[in-house]
Nucleic acid binder design. Structure first.
Lengths: 208, 208
DNA sequence: GAGCCGGCAATACGATCGTATAGGCTGAGT
DNA sequence: ACTCAGCCTATACGATCGTATTGCCGGCTC
């Protein structure tokens, strides 16, 4: 599912260049001439393949959604939460390594709002929600858990750091999207989900 | 610390209009003429007060940082984590209600990167880190806790939903930035920090 | 009351934007 | 061998961009 070399056509090169620049500078900050220069072609060719800037943006969006769907459709909501979390983990690392610009692009998409953002976000929340429902059915959740917020929390645990990846990596001694980086991330998330941050003694000492 | 009426000068109106549009469309998507129209003045006046678009952006940035500093300098890192969380809560609600466009603007700032983004993010992480250190000194944290990731998690618990506020509100039956919305948010965060999502029985049944 | 200064609008200019159009090159089909 | 479709470049046009310049107007000082 690598993006390079699988389709070396000029059209794909243009789309990839557009994705790269749009992730970095946003749609308004990316001109067709910029895309052409980045792809090493003439500006006219860009509009030969994608007639307007809007259509180019739509094709980039569609490609990103396809990547997202491809990586996360393998995440089956079954088994323990640890297993689901592990699948999520692998999906995230596949997703992030397939194209380094994807997290930034998605961050912009989510920020921009619109149907695509809602589809992405609701899809992720729905996935974690379904996973939580399974655990809840076996009595694995605390009674009285706010399922809506719990789903959001679980989603943001994975999505949040991805959105501000460069800022977070300044606090880590390794890339976030790497085997070691993801593992450390996963361990922290697992610890938080399993037992929170405060140790039980704290509860007794400080009920406030 | 309201933004309107405290300084009704034309210059401030222009700055507020710029903040609004830049939060919504980004810097590249906001022209000086747009700002002027939004503020109800002539484009020439915008560059009379702020000589260039870059300077205008800088002043908007500075104002936002000032608001951030003003709201969060009252958060003293002392007392229980619940108290700190409560202070955070109040700061967030003050911050979000003082100017509804601020979260989106900050989201763009963090996404864009740069010194301002790093200053903001590191400041927040540092604040939560200090709070965690205090709790840790009293033995309130689980042994072996990854302090770096715990700080990030705690920060993202409050920052994350703010960044994707419109997407999250679609799953809630109330505005996120409201007394009831914030309280529900705070309860979910408190529960997660205190005990995680999984109940202890789950631990025994499923150690994976 | 003359002079002046700062808030404000209007206009102009060069650059760059998105888009339209026309032309050149190449390879496959007949 | 000729044609023709498709990839690609080049050029052009109108709109809009950021910015510079000019001038109007009201309130201030001396």
């Amino acid at each position: 599912m690598r993006i390079a070399e699988t389709d070396p056509s000029t059209r794909s090169r243009i789309r990839e260049a557009a994705l790269r620049l749009m992730a970095e500078r946003g749609l308004a900050g990316t001109s067709i001439r910029d895309v052409a220069r980045e792809a090493g072609v003439s500006p006219g060719l860009v509009q030969h393949h994608f007639h307007t800037k809007e259509r180019l943006k739509q094709e980039v969006d569609a490609w990103v959604v396809e990547q997202l769907r491809g990586e996360f459709e393998s995440v089956t909501v079954s088994g323990s939460m640890a297993q689901v979390s592990d699948q999520f983990c692998r999906a995230v690392v596949r997703f992030g390594t397939s194209c380094p610009e994807l997290p930034a692009f998605i961050a912009r998409t989510l920020l921009e709002g619109g149907a695509m953002a809602e589809g992405m976000f609701d899809g992720l929340v729905g996935l974690t929600r379904a996973s939580l429902e399974l655990v809840a059915a076996e009595g694995g959740l605390w009674p009285g858990t706010d399922m809506v917020w719990a789903s959001i929390q679980l989603t943001m645990m994975w999505l949040g750091p991805l959105l501000v990846q460069p800022l977070i990596e300044r606090h880590l001694d390794q890339p976030l999207i790497s085997d070691a980086g993801i593992e450390r991330w996963r361990l922290a998330n697992a610890a938080l989900v399993r037992r929170g941050l405060l140790s039980p003694e704290r509860d007794a000492v400080e009920p406030g």
